[in-house]
């Protein structure tokens, strides 16, 4: 785990330690970084000098952490070097957040870091079409897979835009692994989380872990007069069928879905200030052919 709350001459710092990946340890470090205590006007420094690896797609929740810290005062990023610096330069994170020049991705595997306002779904669609659908590295992905990938990512983005109340908007980033036939895409926000969203509907604050379970497994919805909860469940079923993976971080809890063992919860140890949805698509396994359901009038 990283080291939190170290007091330096410049203020407080959080040091990301070792390998920061898309797992409970990596998400835990991001959550801890968002919760570093400080005195008024002190700068919080996110220190990467002890970081050996940083998953590219985690630039999205890192963006949330930076914005969360900036709401309360100054924040800085230091110690970026080597492979960690390279990946954050290539996916555009350092260009957006630090104003650094974007490094050319000669391998063509990064999916650009970006932030969108809650009402900017048309811009997100454009981004998706330019950076994912037409990504050179993904040209070999079969069309039925790409269609499911597009639908899944749009569902998750729309869910975040509608339910999160995230003042700074929605943060996205991805990474393609051509040799593993895998696409990772992460959508993060700085909003009220699953528990906050359900509380608006049920006037009851569920624990973070229970709130995610109620939405995904039980089909609870935060909408009063309209159905919901179908989008995430559809994505979940597609990923189960194709050997993908879905991770949801909300507040202090994380749920992970994979083919085996199914849904497993984990605690982060600190509260992430919003929600992270990370999807790992298997780009090669074809989706199941749809079972015939007849005409609309035969459905019910």
């Amino acid at each position: 785990m990283g080291r939190a709350g170290a007091v330096t001459m410049a203020g407080c710092s959080y040091s990301f330690a070792g390998s920061v990946g898309s797992d409970s340890s990596g998400y835990g470090q991001l959550a801890a970084a968002a919760n570093v205590g400080r005195l008024v006007a002190e700068t919080v420094d996110l220190d990467f000098s002890r970081t050996s690896f940083f998953d590219a797609n985690l630039a999205a929740p890192l963006g949330v952490v930076v914005h969360h810290l900036l709401r309360a005062g100054p924040a800085a990023i230091s110690g970026l070097s080597g492979a960690v610096r390279a990946i954050l330069d290539k996916n555009g994170f350092t260009a957006k957040v630090l104003g650094a020049p974007r490094r050319i991705d000669t391998h063509g595997t990064t999916i650009r870091y970006e932030r969108f306002g809650l009402a900017e779904y048309p811009a997100f669609v454009q981004y998706f079409r330019h950076t994912v659908s037409s990504h050179g590295g993904l040209a070999t992905v079969p069309l039925p897979n790409m269609r499911e990938i597009e639908a899944a990512i749009l569902e998750i983005f729309l869910n975040a835009a509608i339910h999160s109340d995230s003042e700074p908007g929605i943060f996205v980033c991805g990474q393609f692994f051509p040799h593993k036939n895998r696409l990772d895409f992460t959508i993060a926000d700085s909003g009220i989380g699953f528990a906050g969203s359900l509380a608006k509907r049920y006037n009851q604050m569920f624990p973070d872990e229970e709130a995610v379970r109620l939405v995904i497994v039980q089909g609870y919805t935060s909408k009063i007069a309209i159905t919901g909860g179908t989008g995430l469940r559809q994505v979940h079923e597609y990923l189960v069928a194709t050997g993908g993976r879905l991770q949801i971080v909300s507040g202090e809890s994380m749920w992970q879905l994979s083919r085996r063992p199914g849904w497993t919860p984990a605690r982060l140890g600190s509260r992430f200030p919003g929600t992270i949805v990370n999807i790992e698509f298997n780009t090669l396994t074809p989706p199941r052919p749809p079972a015939p359901v007849g005409s609309f009038r035969e459905m019910f």
Partner: peptide
Amino acid sequence: VDVTGLDARDMVLLKVVVDRAKQF
């Protein structure tokens, strides 16, 4: 009401929506 012009994949999605709506 009739719904036309959706392919097999989207008809499955529509059935999920209809089943969920009826229950809801």
